[in-house]
């Protein structure tokens, strides 16, 4: 079994924390993980992507090949289209519907959503609204993890355990809100 994920978003959106959450849960389940991150200049509000590879065997390389990703997991709809050539035909796109408009030539929102839908393999989540309902606006990233979780080769209990680990330092309430965000995202 191997599961390759391309995580996409805009610098500052927390792409790395989503990657860390999934990576931790996969390791809790006893799987091998490789995670390639972007630091430095690219983080400043630009397009960022991270490669996350999960397998029950040894994983030699850090990077996912073209046409080989099982999922594109994106915090932003425009960014979900940027790395399409990594996706294999049976793969999935899971993306937040919330746009980050920080460039002058940002396309029309409905055009983006149309194009995401046209792939025929997309799951579009209103992560912000779901996060708000869970009582923590900052939990949008965990909503996305929830939406992706039913496709991931990781059992729910390990993801929940990873979420608890991630937020335990911030107190019981924050943990509960994030678990709720995860469950709502998964629904």
């Amino acid at each position: 079994m191997k599961y390759d994920i391309i995580l996409a978003g805009v610098g500052g959106q927390g792409v790395l924390s989503v990657a860390a959450c999934i990576a931790t849960s996969a390791m809790l389940q006893g799987l091998n993980v490789r995670q390639s991150e972007v630091h430095g200049m690219a983080q400043r509000g630009g397009a960022v992507m991270s490669h996350l590879r999960i397998s029950d065997k040894e994983i030699p390389g850090d990077l996912v090949g073209r046409g080989n990703a099982d999922m594109i997991l994106s915090m932003e709809p425009l960014e979900s289209l940027r790395y399409l050539d990594y996706l294999n035909p049976e793969g999935k796109i899971v993306t937040s519907s919330e746009t980050v408009i920080n460039i002058p030539d940002y396309p029309d929102e409905s055009e983006i959503i149309e194009n995401v839908k046209a792939t025929g393999v997309s799951v579009i989540v209103d992560a912000k609204a779901i996060a708000r309902e869970s009582g923590n606006m900052k939990a949008a990233n965990i909503v996305i993890v929830g939406a992706a979780s039913s496709y991931l080769p990781v059992e729910q209990k390990y993801i929940e355990q990873a979420i608890k680990q991630m937020f335990s330092a911030k107190g019981e309430d924050v943990v509960e809100q994030n678990l709720k965000a995860f469950i709502s995202g998964r629904a």
């Binding site: 400043r44 630009g46 397009a47 090949g65 399409l84 050539d85 294999n88 194009n115």
Partner: peptide, 20 residues
Amino acid sequence: PKREGLKTEMALPGRPPQLC
């Protein structure tokens, strides 16, 4: 041989890094 993935018709604008 080369490998390929999915494609989109849409022209995507670049998103370079910028000052906070």
